[in-house]
Amino acid sequence: MKNFISIVNLSKVYANNFKALDEINLEIEKGEIFALLGPNGAGKSTLINIICGIVTSSAGKILVNNFDIKKEYRKARSLIGIVPQELTLEAFETVWDNVCYSRGLYGKSLNSNYIESLLKELSLWEKRKSKLRELSGGMKRRVLIAKALSHEPTVLFLDEPSASVDVELRKDMWGIVKRLKQKGVTIILTTHYIEEAEEIADRVGIINHGKIIVVDRKDELIKRLGEKKLILELQETINNIPTILQEFNLELSEDKKRITYTYDTKNKRTGITTLLNLMRDEGINLKDMNTEKSSLESIFINLVKGSNNELLRS
């Protein structure tokens, strides 16, 4: 698939000398939903604000549809819509005027039919004449989405879309995101909720302390999520795994006292009975056994912990 956004060696040092992004390299494919997952302060907002032109980068290069975001900022930015993390809106303007204003800023003439259908889709049509400050938090979030979509962008950034959002809006939002994806819109969202990334993303990138730790397809991560480990403590040490057991995904620990069997819980047959029978036949006696589940959460936590340790060491 074609890369729609490429980020090369991107770094950001804020005015107070804080390094928020450290040599980020990332490719976003056209039409995918990409979730940028990371704890608070990881640099998610900084990254997407740089792509959108709200924050300047310190080093590196970004292309959006092959347009350099600095040199060809008009072409690059015309393609982008952004829903910011904070609910920043004017107070006294009406919903309709404010959404039309956003479209104008992006250099497009008024298209009342499009804006009407957009407001209807976001359940904002009834509120079109309301002043922005009269709206509830959830409604304001909808207005921000409408503004971001007002100029029919081909890539949409959602920064922490479900922060302070009610269940209904979240459902609506995922509906809209899926419909946009069907229309071919590329969607990049940031979140620190793992479930959110799991629910809608095609690919997930995990970021911590300004570094991308892992980027993978969600199914791959879920596959790791479905994996379970059976840990067998042996009575006596063995030197190597008997050939008859080689077809299993086994791992012998360094002290030769423990065998770990990794299997997929979603398979109809996990192979545990066969494995245990074969081991008994081989004369391998067990002292104890237990199982370990790997969730995206534990993958996430391990990765983040790992990168924290690395940071401490350096």
Binding site: K75, R77, I82, E86, T88, L105, Y106, G107
Partner: peptide, 11 residues
């Protein structure tokens, strides 16, 4: 108010 983000992000 922070609405400047829109001007900065616009082409």
């Amino acid at each position: 108010t922070g609405t400047i983000y829109e001007l900065l992000a616009a082409p």
